[in-house]
Design a protein around this nucleic acid. Structure first.
Lengths: 198, 198
DNA sequence: TAGATTGTTAATCGATTAACAATC
DNA sequence: TAGATTGTTAATCGATTAACAATC
């Protein structure tokens, strides 16, 4: 079993290992821990949990590590997501290519405001048929806070199974729908507080 | 002392309480826990940790709770941040107003590419003088991954005390500089995995 | 007084770290 | 064989949950 905490570190390992791949075939947990500023036992435990195994005195095979991490992160199992709310954040996410690295395609957004529609932005009425046609599993909510709940309900009706909500608002959803709240402002606010402590 | 976990829940309380403020003067931990889908003891512990206190049989004063949360979140102590990397994500964050809620002003971005410069986007050469003049404390990195480390170093030279890095790359920084890594792709990838479990 | 709700103390759970045995 | 490195078992730490006493 891969713990949530471990899962959070996998992309960091992945990025580092991809850089190292061209330089070396094997790498030790000690080296990784030093470079990424983690405990060395933690690195070994993390590697063990994704069923990578190393050889004493040698270390771990870099390519195998990369493969294991990508398997766990599901880079290979593709899925599709849509955005509702084509404001600045919505559009930025739409055009941001980084989700592809994890096997997630985001190519369409929906909005109810006429002048936002066009190109990859479709009218909100087309959400349900689009989701049915493309078997969309993930919905990304970037609408203003007071429209979030309604948007979520529409997504559920459209057959979406998981919602990524970019606001501090708690959504009221039926069982079986996965949700993750992403609060960028809070994240930055947390950093601000770290300044005083340092 | 406010734990990191508690800190993460404060904005959710805040958003909910602001909505309730117009309806009621006092609220019980039971109600809050039910609405936000949290443990009721957890709610009381969280409230206790931000030194809010309630009255048995009555509950907590909503306005006082809001004040306490805002004090802890530092909505009142202002600070300024700059963005380096005026790509899509950088620009979206620049135009996104939500940071203001936590007392953080983000009004300028910097880039090294000539045709991105203009309006609120200044040439990267002006970062250091700008930071000195405006006493900028936070730097937001939205440059491509291979330019992140250099950008971070430039920020440190410019007197920035905390860095918010929107990439999976681990930065190598001197002691005393706070860092927070934000990996949106990973966050979405985590949600994708929850689908299978549900 | 009785009952609802707070607030504290103890138990549980999960993740990290430390110690050390296994192995190439 | 000796030494480096893995991998496991036990100890620690922090956060959540349960039990219950305090109080309005």
């Amino acid at each position: 079993m891969v713990s949530k905490a471990t899962l959070g570190r996998l992309p960091t390992y992945l990025e580092y290992l991809k850089r190292q791949r061209v330089l070396t075939k094997v790498i030790s947990s000690t080296t990784v821990s030093r470079e990424l500023d983690l405990g060395e036992v933690q690195v070994r435990k993390d590697f063990a949990s994704i069923s990578a195994n190393g050889k004493p005195k040698t270390g771990y095979n870099v390519s195998e590590l990369i493969d294991s991490i990508e398997t766990v992160l599901g880079t290979n199992t593709k899925c599709e997501a849509v955005i509702v709310g084509a404001g600045r954040l919505g559009k930025a996410l739409l055009e941001y290519g980084g989700f592809h690295d994890y096997g997630i395609t985001v190519k369409t957004a929906f909005d109810s405001t006429q002048d936002k529609i066009g190109g990859s932005v479709l009218p909100i009425e087309e959400l349900a048929p689009y989701c049915a046609l493309h078997q969309v599993e993930i919905g990304i909510i970037t609408v203003p806070q007071d429209a979030a709940q309604k948007t979520a309900e529409l997504m559920v009706k459209s057959g979406i199974k998981a919602i990524w909500c970019l606001s501090a608002l708690k959504l009221d959803l039926p069982d079986g729908i996965a949700v993750h709240y992403e609060n960028l402002s809070l994240s930055l606010a947390n950093l601000k507080q770290k300044i005083k402590i340092n």
